[in-house]
Design a protein around this nucleic acid. Structure first.
Lengths: 285, 285
DNA sequence: CGTAGCCTTGATGGTGATCAAGCCAAGTGG
DNA sequence: CCACTTGGCTTGATCACCATCAAGGCTACG
């Protein structure tokens, strides 16, 4: 039973998840092996959620919240679903029937303005939950940024599980606190004035996120488009582009390609992140 | 036992909470009576939490989440604390030992920049929870904006209660989802370009908040200073002031005094809220 | 009545949004 | 294998908007 599932998932992995693979495959064959193990371990046994706890010390690392038993319980009501890049997972205002647990790929949640603009509320990665609702309706739209694999959990069944399992509920609370903190980080980014500060903080968030999961240290993977970054940071697409270039020409960042950055000058980078990026104070030669 | 508590709370109410009283006392004696009842009902029997549920329909109204029994259970470990206007409830980076349940007044949570600026993450009112932590440390500072009365719940004891009461946990989940949505509304505000849009959306949020609790319809109470609004919306204090004046001179809003607004022109107001407030589109005569 | 905090108003300049081309990379079909 | 297309990204020029600096007013409270 389980071996079959693992096999199936691996096939999917190599077929559709090239971007996910690219994310971790930073040129080292070693990495690739461990990714497969990691991936099949996670997806083969049911839903997976991780978060930085609010009470225990984990030294900035996320911890996996679910026990094997809980994962198995959730797996009973869950079904595995895939979304191609750009495909919609659900739409704002739709009847909320499912909670999604992403186990591979990247998604974004956003709200649209009448004029066609978007405000991206969050980027979501593996071990995240998506599907926030209010009075039975989704409050955001969710779309895959890179091909997504997720468990789809019917809210009805989930409700039943939760009411009978205090530990599972507790884990959900930990995860929600985590998401709340992430939203506050996001607020922090948007509040910052100065384009350089904003993009630096954005990169900083990506870095922290990948560090907390012990993914590819040293180089930061940027899975989303410039235009998504613009919608997330509240800037224009052009401003994002220019800011990246400025940071690159001043040797603060270095781009291997459009989706891989390395931080060259940690001091000046941290200076921007911690707020010294205000316009007239930023006298970059 | 309980009656004594009620008495004590009422005394506190009239002594220190003039602003809270003013909030609801909109010139009608009727209001005042019901406020007292409401207040003593809430504070006399233990902690109180309300939220808009994520699944059931409540037509935009918040519902009280805790049963009498749960409130009594929580009351056992809780102690009632008061904070004067401007007083700190806890500081960013402090050891997180308590969760606070506000039952009267207004508080703000914020993070400070090295240059002394603040980014306000949220305003908190009665029936709200404050004290978000990461790895045992508060992630924000919290300060009373108007005199606050709150229940202080030791995390240790709370943990124990939660693990034994799935329903209580479930209520907490509902509340956290609510807070997450509020944070996303805030993101929406910050993302908007155009000063008029931002302040309109801010007023809109206040209105929705007060409506959802069925407080003083028709007039919106603005308990926080201009400078707090600036820190919340990511604008300068002057820009907030100017925007308010613009909205007032164009008969979209009317201020009874600095803390009470009425929406005069609902159509144009909604226009701003929903994004037509972008600079060059805003041709206000 | 005086002082302090908060708010309003004015003048100015920098910053980033916007409009408008070009560029690069990846995919498609001949 | 090479035109052709498409979508995403970069770059340039212009100007509106708002942050900033700097006074002046209002209110509240001693």
């Amino acid at each position: 039973l389980i071996p079959i599932k693992v096999g199936a998932v691996c096939r999917v992995h190599f077929g559709e998840l090239r971007e996910v693979e690219a994310l971790r495959n930073c040129g080292k064959a070693m990495k690739r092996k461990s990714t497969i193990d990691d991936f099949s371990r996670r997806s083969g046994r049911g839903p997976s959620i991780s978060a930085v706890p609010f009470n225990e010390l984990s030294h900035g690392k996320t911890v996996h919240l679910l026990s094997e038993r809980e994962r198995a319980q959730l797996a009973v009501i869950a079904s595995l679903v895939r979304f191609k890049k750009g495909e919609q997972i659900y739409g704002e205002g739709n009847r909320a029937e499912y909670l999604y647990n992403i186990i591979g790929g990247v998604a974004k949640t956003f709200r649209s303005f009448p004029d066609g603009r978007k405000r991206i509320m969050a980027f979501l990665f593996s071990d995240d939950l998506v599907g926030l609702a209010e009075e039975g309706l989704y409050v955001n739209s969710a779309v895959a940024v890179a091909p997504v694999i997720a468990y789809r959990l019917p809210l009805a069944g989930l409700d039943h599980l939760l009411r009978n399992d205090p530990t599972l509920e507790y884990h959900l609370i930990v995860k929600l606190c985590h998401e709340l903190r992430e939203a506050q980080h996001h607020l922090f980014v948007l509040g910052r004035h100065g384009a350089l500060s904003k993009v630096a903080l954005f990169i900083h968030i990506l870095e922290r996120h990948q560090e907390s999961r012990q993914e590819n240290l040293g180089e930061i993977y940027v899975p989303m488009s410039r235009s998504d970054i613009a919608d997330y940071t509240g800037m224009s697409l052009e401003a994002v582009s220019r800011s990246f270039r400025t940071l690159a020409t001043h040797r603060i960042l270095a781009f291997r390609d459009r989706r891989h950055v390395r931080i060259l000058d940690r001091d000046r980078f941290d200076g921007l992140v911690s707020g010294e990026g205000r316009p007239h104070e930023t006298a970059l030669p």
